[in-house]
Design a protein around this nucleic acid. Structure first.
Lengths: 197, 197, 197, 197
DNA sequence: GATGAATGAGCCTTCATTCAT
DNA sequence: GATGAATGAAGGCTCATTCAT
């Protein structure tokens, strides 16, 4: 791997949690300089603009989350039930700063970008689309395999995502994992009652 | 008669949706100047700092939401069941920019402030505390009056708030009320199944 | 005395030490508001501009100093020797914040105004002219009355003023009366040796 | 080669007389922009704050003065008497804008900073300490070498500094070197009479 | 005579960005 | 590929001043 790519990745690695914690408007290139030890020119060598860096940082954070999902699904094995529960557990990590400090990048970036940053908003949308697809597919497969009863997979995805993200918001606000844990527990009960056969 | 108070209120009225849409860091005093037609000094005559204005704007938005809750509860009458459903319906309005454009100020402000703006965060916390109290009280009263079965009122509040706020996030992200409507529908079913006798 | 004049005097009384301590550029109308409890309009009712107020404040401080001189000379009686020594003693008071906090207004205002505030500079010059006159007159009278030997009265005045003002500067800088006391002692010895018969 | 250092020095060179003439409060970054031809950012690339620039400017002015002292002492040779008289002569230059326009930076900065700018005040104090040391050392050496009679060296330093600085104030106020020249002449006579054997 | 409200210019400082080296 | 130096615009805030009430 060429040196340039390495530096670029290094910058992203440092900028990603920063943007996740302080937001796009709240983070400055000076913050990134501090976090990386690089000078302005060094950063602009790898990114054309703060926007490009912000997008890359978001993609990095989202990549970390996606990796957790992949790993969770893999560990869960073939069972849609196990997979669905594993997927929920991944999100609970945000209460402990995992896999990235500052809470869920989807929530953070969605809330900041939905009224004025189309570029970032588009990326968040793609990420949430991916997440919804992932959940929908598990549900659809669960139904097909006779593990789940008939249900609207998209609706289930909405419910899971809504409940988890709202739970993240509360847990971050109160600096306590309790709310997120309750939200996850609620989801498990809900799925047990309404989806599992 | 107090012209000063009128101007102060006028500024707040204009700044409140602005801050709700663009966030604290994303909004500048220049934006407020544009929105109000006042000059910098005219604004600083009424607010000591951007912080003070931001807090006032948040309180204004939260006041609008609180008023909706009061009205909804009043319209719902005495029944805890009716009140709980009415409370949920209030939040659905955010999908249509009601009672303030830019989505739920609690969600927006919580997400922006939880990693670095203690002043605002404190205010959001107080507001969410109020909301949780309101929901808890309805649940507690429902149990006492024999309308609800035994349940952890605080847990119910967490579930309702999480689901709604996550739904607002999704609906804002997709510019569509669907997700929020689904989240609300889910809550109604959940409450019917698990809380109502 | 009309109410207006009273208020004007009150403002001056409060502004005078403020300007003496913080200087013309370093003091703001807001400072004067704070010191007086009046609002902007209340101050501008009595002074057309900050300049006018600054001049009035300087004149007030200078008036306090002049009064000390008058009193000292009066107490000293007719003897030019006693008068000269009394005049020196007056200035020593500045080490203790007397008759105005912030040091000698002549020194302060001269140093700030000599490179850019002609209005104030003119006033300081008049004040120092007065002081020089006072000293010269004592010397001249002392010579005429045979108490002093022949000397250049203007030169004597320059030496006294220079030494005292430099002493004030040092004592203010070191927050200690020592330097000013030494300067005054030096002047007394000098006069005893060189002027007194 | 270090362009940055050059620019920094250039800024200081231009800002130093400006601050000496108009004072810290009386000088603005805009003034420095005008004096240097640089833009705001260009200045802030080299100084973290106006304070830092002000301190640098003071140190520059003080450096010029110190250099004059060094040169004067060197030219004067070994004799304490010659050195003492040379040191006095250095200060007389301020009447002609030498080595820096705007008068003595020690006097100017002391008078402005003693009631509210601790950072600058500290620097002035160090500078005056240096000057006092220099004078004290000459006196002490003069006594040791039998050129001077027994005397309190610190007292002599106070008298010399007070008289010169007061003289500078008067000469600046009257835009005439006369007062400072008289003050210096007085010092020479005083030293001849009281110190020299 | 005093206030409160408004202004326009200015304050110090930071912003994202560019580019010669 | 990284730096250091520069910029123009914008940041939040304070200034002295005016004037209707």
């Amino acid at each position: 791997m060429p040196k340039g790519q390495e530096t670029r990745d290094f910058i992203i690695t440092k900028a990603a949690p920063l943007f996740n914690e302080k937001g796009y408007s709240g983070s400055s290139i000076a913050d990134v300089m501090l976090a990386t030890g690089l000078k302005k020119g060094g950063i602009y060598n790898h990114f054309e603009s703060k926007d490009e860096l912000a997008v890359a940082a978001f993609e990095h954070n989202w990549g970390l989350l996606k990796a957790r999902y992949a790993q969770a699904l893999h560990t869960a094995g073939e069972s849609p039930t196990a997979q669905l529960f594993a997927a929920i557990d991944v999100h609970v990590g945000f209460a402990e700063g995992e896999p990235v400090v500052g809470g869920c990048p989807l929530l953070n970036t969605a809330v900041e970008s939905d009224d004025g940053h189309p570029l970032l908003r588009e990326r968040v949308r793609e990420a949430v689309d991916f997440w919804r697809d992932l959940l929908r597919n598990i549900v659809t497969r669960g139904i097909a395999q006779g593990e789940f009863c008939i249900a609207d997979a998209d609706e289930i995805a909405t419910i899971i995502i809504s409940t988890l993200e709202g739970g993240v918001m509360l847990s971050k606000l109160y600096h306590s994992p309790d709310h997120l844990l309750r939200a996850a527990a609620h989801l498990r009960t809900f799925l047990n009652d309404k989806l599992l056969l």
